[in-house]
């Protein structure tokens, strides 16, 4: 091996590998092993049962909705925090991390209280004929709440590092605000947006605590996949729980892989030639 100037490589790599093995690979391996102990037919029967499929649909669609909402709202929030100076900016900046710090069950109960038909928001929305608590919309709200920081915190540093001269250059060349945003700023933010988006979506797929309080948990309509896996666990049907969880795992993994590829594409200009 070539001699290294930076010290600590064997030790650091050793610690990293041990941690990754114990904390990440081992549990996931056990999950896959458990699911694989079912025969293919049993596995397929469990993961393709109507109740499971309905749970995939509501989970994926709600996660998609929450992620799209966060994409717009989170980017706006990052933009405001970076571009403008106003009283309370640091306070809002600190507030963004709150969903990370708050126990998700607490968030779920708080959101349920707010959006229940007699709650502050719920009673107003009920007049407009919109029902949030105990519907897929409620699931979306809980997912959006818990995954908002991902988009804000990935976009913010990139936006901060954006050279103001780029926008000035675009202006001197006659670009309108709209074309500057679409042709200069957005493409430069795309890699960060993709990263935030994939984290936000993956988190929404797996979110449990915040959702079960607001969702109503009706099988076939507002039952999320994570809850279905949990129910199977309660029934001591570990193999079925593992099978259902493996679907979530595979989905999240595929999605992260796809966004990584898209990110590499969006960053191809940084490759040295």
């Amino acid at each position: 091996m070539a001699r290294r100037i930076l010290p600590g490589f064997p030790l650091a790599l050793g610690i990293t590998l041990v941690y990754v093995s114990i904390i990440v690979v081992l549990p996931l391996g056990a999950l896959v092993f458990k699911a694989a102990s079912l025969g293919f037919e049993d596995y397929w029967r469990i993961v393709s049962s109507p109740r499971a499929v309905a749970s995939y649909r509501v989970t994926a669609l709600s996660a998609l909705g929450a992620t799209v909402f966060n994409l717009v709202f989170g980017m706006a929030l990052a933009w405001v925090l970076v571009r403008y100076r106003f009283p309370g900016r640091r306070f809002i900046d600190a507030l963004v991390d709150l969903p990370f710090a708050l126990p998700t069950a607490v968030a779920g109960i708080a959101l349920t209280t707010l959006f229940a038909e007699n709650g502050w928001f719920g009673s107003v929305l009920a007049h407009a004929g919109i029902k949030v608590a105990y519907t897929p919309l409620g699931i979306m709200v809980a997912m959006a709440f818990t995954s908002l920081p991902f988009i804000v915190r990935t976009v913010q540093p990139v936006l901060e590092d954006l050279d103001p001269a780029l926008e000035e250059a675009a202006q001197t060349l006659g670009g309108s605000d709209r074309s500057i945003f679409l042709r200069v700023i957005l493409p430069l933010l795309t890699p960060a947006l993709l990263a935030g988006l994939s984290l936000s979506f993956a988190r929404s797929l797996g979110e449990f605590g915040a959702i079960i309080f607001i969702a109503g948990n009706q099988p076939m309509s507002t039952e999320i996949t994570a809850l279905l896996a949990f129910i199977r666990l309660e029934e001591y049907d570990y193999q079925a729980a593992a099978a259902i969880a493996s679907v979530l795992l595979i989905t999240a993994f595929l999605m992260l892989a796809v966004t990584n590829i898209l990110q590499a594409r969006a960053l191809r200009y940084t490759a040295r030639g």
Partner: peptide
Amino acid sequence: FQHYALFPH
């Protein structure tokens, strides 16, 4: 511009 400000993408 002094540091060119070319659009990197």
